[in-house]
Design a protein around this nucleic acid. Structure first.
Length: 256
DNA sequence: ATGCCTTGATAGTCAAGA
């Protein structure tokens, strides 16, 4: 089966792109980020006809908003990341689906809001680590997909694409990424493309044609799902379309 | 090197994205 993550940069603006992606790649599950709309404003897509059910968590204003589309029904497990009760940002969903737990997330960028904005990103990453650790302790087969806003190493960005103090490449951001993956999670894109992990984001303008990109959208798998990993990739066709998102979808295929 | 483009909220610009 195929799972995917797509930061659409406005689901209303990108509804045609999303439908083309679903038609082309036929994922069984896709997590969406940057809906940029309220829950009730999520566009009336032809999803039910294509066999997709959905959980949508929108938010007015800002860039947030996440959703999970599944072939067949799924059970909503969480619509917020535990650990910070006052955090109202729509960035996290988790569902139970076909015997696995799937989280879809939009991790804070961390470059706005000054020191507090960066601190929020790092707290969010620590909360994610704690949540993932609890899932693994309970032996839940776990897949975490989304826009992590983290370039894990210097191989994950074009040289000079970001200044060294950027929140996406900051040493403390990378340390928190390692604390997460070192729980025993497999980076599915890296595992199958270790020599040249593909980029998932290219700035608007000439970045895509110059392949001046970043790898910030990720799929992390618990050990039992990593053993089922058959393929992974980036749907660059979606980024090459007219009026694209600045992100391309990431997909993985699992046996069974 | 930089939000160089893009979007949404809002009413001419501005913040935020990465």
């Amino acid at each position: 089966m195929k799972l995917a993550s797509f930061n659409v940069n406005s689901v209303r603006k990108r509804a045609p792109n999303l439908l083309r992606f679903l038609d082309r790649e036929a994922p069984d599950l896709v997590v969406l980020q940057e809906l940029k709309c309220r829950t009730e404003e999520f566009p009336a897509l032809e999803l039910q006809g294509a066999g997709y059910a959905r959980h949508v968590l929108g938010q007015k204003g800002g860039r947030n908003g996440v959703a999970i589309l599944t072939r067949g029904e799924s059970e909503l497990l969480a619509d917020r990341l535990p650990g910070e009760d006052e955090d109202e940002q729509a960035r996290f969903l988790a569902v139970a689906w076909r015997g696995i737990t799937v989280a879809g997330l939009y991790l804070p960028n961390g470059n706005s809001g000054g020191a507090e904005g960066l601190a929020y990103k790092w707290r969010w990453m620590e909360r994610l680590r704690a949540w993932a650790a609890a899932q693994l302790d309970a032996f839940a087969p776990l897949a975490i997909l989304g826009d992590f806003n983290v370039c894990p190493t210097d191989a994950d960005l074009a040289p000079g694409a970001l200044p060294p103090e950027d929140a996406l490449v900051h040493p403390q951001t990378r340390a928190r990424w390692r604390a997460l993956t070192h729980l025993g999670l497999t980076d599915a894109l890296l595992a199958l493309h270790p020599e040249e992990p593909p980029f998932t984001y290219w700035d608007y303008g000439s970045a895509f044609e110059q392949n001046r990109g970043l790898r910030i959208d990720h799929a992390l798998l618990s050990p039992e799902l990593a053993e089922r990993l058959e393929g992974s990739g980036v749907d660059t066709a979606a980024r090459a379309e007219e009026s694209p998102s600045d992100h391309a979808p990431v997909w993985i295929t699992l046996a069974g």
